[in-house]
Design a protein around this nucleic acid. Structure first.
Lengths: 343, 343
DNA sequence: TGAATTTTTTGTATCGATACAAAAAGGGAG
DNA sequence: CTCCCTTTTTGTATCGATACAAAAAATTCA
């Protein structure tokens, strides 16, 4: 440990100077081919391991990128993380992972920790309730940062997310096309931008519809499978009549479907359920879940790609990107392979 | 950027020496309370951000820990990652995340990258096919490392996993108790330690049973939901008769259940299916999946905990830990709330 | 061949913290 | 008021790389 091999050791071994070895390590074209080979062999022979901490101290570039997310055990964030990591990994960047579990204090600690690690940039899925104040640190230090999927008002940072409002709008139009006039939005934290966007899209659909008596209700204030399950149980006990459910996301939808499988009502027949996200397991649900496809890993990849551009100093990176998403019709809405409803 | 605040700036501002400021930053008890307060105020005022790279260069401790996994989009690894991260996060360690996607070359690059970042220790879920040779680098450098869930022969590193063989044994005993004499192991990469462990447990159960004509077949060579789906389709086309399926894991089981929901056979009634892992979504399956519970996030947490002990230099850390796991009886095996089969 | 270039290589200061030993300041006892 | 011991504080070398300017070697050209 204490006797780790350093650049100097290689220099001595190869009979050149430290500087030359440094050039080789950085892949600089300034060094003669023969020298490069000689140095690389010495490094190999001595079992050298590059010390990034030392390098970054002087060069002011760590190659570290921070990724802060709510919790990777949530499949949506897991896919997101996967997308980000996959892209960044091939670019030989190191990803520092942090989970805030929707806790603002934890989030602040994480951000701070990443800053201490001198990340070249970060991607953050902000915790519920994050305001511009919470991330002011990043702004002051001027670290390239991308806010992912959840908007933060007045943050003045790059944003990438999906056009949830449009998605919710399309989903509810579809529910209405199935003559489900009692629309429910199940799950989500009321008041958060993510929830607001859904409400916005739904409201628009409600205003456009010509169906008499169409109405819209919000239930639940949480985003777990269990929450979906519980909310559905409650709906069931009140009786199901012309019900169309838009779940906050596919996880919540999964809980809803589970609850209805235990009931006398058949999803698709007696009511319609649509999710949002299209996580991998949704097409294996029963009934297969109709959902708004959000290309999650693409979202992650895009964030990673944009971040790299920002870090590289490219100026023409879009300030805000809203990924288009589309309705994937499966069975839970009531459509069947032979009989799709036009919305 | 270039004009970031340093310890020296704080020292000047607070009217003390660099050394004193350093002590304060490390929370050393050597410094007088009044001085500490003064320094902290200066740091606050100047917007100081601790530079870990600089610190670790001299102190030889980075506080970085590496976590290498196959892919976080797999729920099993996602929960594992969650467990690891949750524990490490509170200990103010930074987690460097890497995904090898079962690619040995990618894995080697990752390990190397972590070593360059001078991680204090690492937790690795090795890629399929990893041998002691692949991780020799770690051994040479003597970095505290824990191999998680998948064994690597002759690695001589700490190992934490679940007792899969015992789990598979219990699962198959249960299948046999349901009079399913045609046992199938579906999914998994044949030849890997993880697969071997399952085969071992199953074989033991087959040897113990008194059921005439009991037999055991391996199908599939992959570990995705789709693989489970496809394998089940094939079984269905051959006709189902006294079939008991042990799925390689819950993901594969999820695909199997989906395939049977499309068929004339009812899982639980016409055949039995048992999974392994008990990931969060399994109890929401239909029928609810009977499975071998592996407390995944606990596994992650234990790995994290052990790693911290190793890093701290504690010597009495167990070399290998096999977490006990238990059979969670739900519906897919054929038991019903009122009528459980004793195995 | 020698001067002018171009290509390689090197020396030295530096990044921002910690380690360690040594100095200064406080406190109590005699 | 000293002396001695304890508590605080400080000075200086150091970790292992890169930056930058300058030197040395190789090549080109007149």
């Amino acid at each position: 440990m204490g006797n780790a091999i350093t650049l100097q050791d290689i220099a001595t071994n190869a009979g050149v100077s430290k500087s030359t070895v440094s050039f080789v390590m950085q892949g600089s074209p300034l060094v003669a081919e023969a020298t490069r080979k000689k140095v690389q062999e010495s490094a190999q022979r001595l079992g050298y391991v590059y010390n990034r901490a030392a390098a970054s101290l002087r060069s002011r570039q760590t190659g570290n990128l921070g990724f802060i997310v709510s919790s990777v055990s949530n499949p949506f964030f897991a896919e997101l993380t996967d997308g980000v990591e996959q892209f960044l990994g091939t670019e030989s960047k190191t990803v520092l992972l942090g989970q805030h579990s929707e806790d603002l204090v934890a989030q602040e600690r994480l951000i701070n920790s990443m800053l201490e690690s001198r990340v070249d940039g970060m991607i953050i899925v902000p915790a519920y309730g994050t305001s511009a104040k919470e991330i002011s640190r990043i702004l002051t230090l001027n670290i390239p940062t991308i806010i992912l999927t959840r908007r933060v008002m007045n943050a003045n940072l790059h944003y990438i997310g999906s056009d949830t409002s449009a998605g919710a709008h399309e989903a509810v139009r579809h529910l209405l096309a199935h003559k489900r006039k009692n629309i429910f939005l199940v799950g989500g934290r009321v008041g958060t931008p993510a929830h607001e966007e859904r409400v916005e899209g739904i409201t628009k659909a409600m205003q456009e519809t010509k169906i008499a008596g169409a109405n819209f209700t919000v239930i639940g204030d949480s985003v777990t499978r269990q929450a979906g399950f519980d909310a559905a149980k409650e709906l069931i006990s009140n009786g199901i009549n012309n019900v169309g459910i838009l779940a906050y996301n596919d996880i919540v939808a999964s809980g809803i479907l589970a609850a209805f499988r235990d009931s006398k009502y058949k999803v698709g027949q007696d009511l319609s359920v649509i999710g949002i996200d299209d996580i991998e397991s949704s097409r294996f649900e029963s009934p297969a879940l109709t959902t708004i496809e959000v290309n999650v890993s693409e979202l992650g990849r895009m964030a990673a790609e944009s971040l790299l551009k920002l870090v590289a100093g490219e100026s023409k990176v879009k300030k805000a990107v809203y990924l288009k998403n589309k309705l994937i019709i499966r069975e839970s809405c009531g459509c069947t392979p032979g009989k799709k409803v036009a919305s």
